[in-house]
Nucleic acid binder design. Structure first.
Lengths: 190, 190
DNA sequence: CCCAAATACTCAACTTGTTGACTAGGTCGC
DNA sequence: GCGACCTAGTCAACAAGTTGAGTATTTGGG
């Protein structure tokens, strides 16, 4: 029921196709709202039925037609109402953390491998976010940007994504150190 | 399908009732795996059917009977296998971040109120985590704990929860400052 | 020249997660 | 001594999310 708000928040930047939205979600919304393309398409149909978005079919010569969605006045209103409501606490699901919690009774080497992989992923994500950030700032300093830009929302959420991933990197490194040292100790003592 | 792994990770600490598990989830597992009591009870029945856990009914004099669950050898094995598998990327859902992204087109004052509330929540959580941490360390330094304790998994995940919430507090504060300044500017200039 | 990847989706089946109400006794504070 | 909250769950109905496959065309790399 709440995916729609995330979709509308992206549509504030203007028309987009389902496919565009899927990419936008992948690129930057994924920090705080994950979804599969299937969910998106299904939700878009419902939102159109509820008059929150309107679709404009664009016939393309050498490609399948696409539908470009944009916010209706009702949609904009619904989004504004959503921002005013109280929000549910963050819901997280992280299998790696479950594995770390159970690492003492599991395959420590494999958990370490997963931690290394996660760290790499997080580093790659930081790179992408930095690029998006540079694009948003567009040469301005943060100070300039924050006072002159029309929208600051996407920038603020991007900052959260960045610090989340930086924290991830640090945590993975910490876990690896601890598990490494323990491995050494357990090999030596018993 | 993966809630069961989180349940088994908690059961490594020993027998627990469905209710105990619900509390444990609320207190510390909630950082990386959220679930409702209903989900838990349903999953516990299935896990018992799959011989991953065993239930021992304890008759209580002045209370309804309770069932205490513990890991079976199969459950322990399944958990170890899980730790060795590759893990899905983190799935997050955070309505507040959606609201912040859409704040420019929404009710900025209400979003600020939500940010303040979230910050308070995060601060309260930090307090609880610090208390759990102190209990785990039990007077030892971190160094001592990490080399002497039987399990380090719960400690490591606790650290992640702590830094996540500290980051939350910082981010909320940052958003509030930015939205405050913008409010001032928008009131003054047009 | 062929294969892979990108564009732009759709469908069906299945598994999970959410909501709200209900049972039932006990204890704690005002 | 009454109402609220705690223990310890259960049930049903519904909403949401996941998985896997399928369609059809075009662009780009080796």
């Amino acid at each position: 029921m709440s995916l729609r708000n995330a979709v509308m928040a992206v549509l504030l930047d203007g028309e987009a196709s389902g496919y565009d939205l899927a990419k936008a979600f992948d690129a930057s919304v994924a920090n705080f709202w994950m979804c599969t393309p299937q969910q998106l398409y299904r939700e878009l149909d419902r939102m159109e039925a509820d008059d929150l978005i309107r679709a404009r079919t664009v016939e393309q010569e050498r490609r399948p037609n696409k539908r470009l969605f944009s916010l209706t006045p009702r949609g904009l209103e619904a989004l504004a109402e959503f921002t005013a409501e109280p929000h549910k606490p963050t819901a997280i699901r992280d299998e790696l953390m479950v594995a770390v919690m159970a690492a003492d009774a599991g395959d420590v080497e494999k958990v370490k491998a997963s931690l290394r992989e996660r760290r790499q992923w997080a580093e790659a994500k930081i790179g992408r976010y930095e690029r998006i950030k540079a694009k948003l700032l567009d040469g301005r300093t943060e100070e300039e940007f924050l006072t002159t830009a029309e929208r600051v929302g996407p920038y603020l959420t991007l900052l959260r994504g960045l610090s989340f991933e930086r924290d991830n990197v640090r945590w993975c490194a910490r876990c690896l150190t601890v598990l490494e040292r323990r491995g050494a100790r357990l090999d030596a003592s018993p």
